[in-house]
Computed example of a mutant assay.
Amino acid sequence: MDMNVLLAFLTASFLVSMSPGAGAVNTMNSVVNHGFRSTIPTILGLEVGYGIQILVVAVGLGAILASSNVLFSVIKWIGVGYLIWLGIQKWISNPTFNPEHEYSSSNMKLFWQSALVNLTNPKATVFLVALLPQFLSSDTSTHPTQLLIMGTTLLVVDVIVMLCYASLASKFQRFITSDKRMRITNRIFGSFFILAALLLSSFKKAT
């Protein structure tokens, strides 16, 4: 890829990853509730979900999803329902304050929860379908290499941005000094999950 094109794509990747969304909320929630070590399974799950989205678009299936109202709606409403479910779970949870900020939750649970957050977000697919072709050269023989570079760039950038969100969330832990504050924190993140669901429900693909 031309260096100027790659730099432009890198900039676009950072802007997209930095925009607050369900992935960022999920990452910050995991850190606050389960400690900074939960960052690893959480971000790995997000990137697996994101990577599958990128792969789907790269092989052309994303265009089918983007053009199909039925498929788009099905995935969108599954995503909306999942985010609302996560939000409700945070609202009704009754955690006990732990000064070490090590709350019980398996790494696999955090991993799959995060993967589903990205997998059930059709906005990512529509975005990728619109973005990737803008940076592909006219030489179709180099498309696989270019898509590999762009896909890797998207994932690496997203990991960096999610680590920044995780670091920011770790600063909040010092204020969680009681069961009451833990419940309040959970309800704040629960509200963010529900807000993300409402935003996703209002999203409509371009016609």
Rank of each mutant, 00 (worst) to 15 (best):
K180Y: 13
T27R: 00
T177L: 04
N98Y: 07
P144L: 10
V74F: 12
N94R: 14
V126S: 01
L116I: 04
L83Q: 12
M150K: 02
M150H: 02
P122A: 14
V117T: 06
L83P: 11
L10V: 14
S19T: 12
I54G: 00
T142K: 15
R37S: 15
R37D: 14
M3A: 13
I52N: 00
A66V: 11
L46E: 07
I176M: 07
W91H: 09
S201Y: 01
I194R: 11
S68C: 04
A169S: 09
S17G: 01
S141F: 01
F203D: 01
Q146W: 08
Q89E: 10
N29F: 05
C164E: 07
A197K: 05
F175W: 12
F72V: 02
T207Q: 13
Q134F: 15
G51N: 06
P95F: 06
T145Q: 12
N121L: 01
L44W: 01
I92N: 08
F36K: 10
L65I: 15
Q134L: 15
F203C: 03
A22H: 00
S105P: 10
V56K: 01
F97K: 08
V117K: 02
M18W: 10
L200H: 05
I149E: 10
T177Q: 04
F14H: 07
M1L: 12
N26H: 12
L86G: 09
L131R: 02
V57S: 08
A58T: 12
S19R: 07
D158N: 09
A206P: 04
A197R: 05
L86N: 13
L46C: 07
L15Y: 05
V74A: 13
T125F: 00
T42D: 09
A130M: 15
T42N: 10
I84S: 10
W85G: 02
H143L: 03
V161N: 09
P99G: 10
L71N: 02
T142E: 14
S105M: 15
A124V: 07
I149P: 07
A124W: 05
F14N: 08
L155V: 11
T152M: 06
N26D: 10
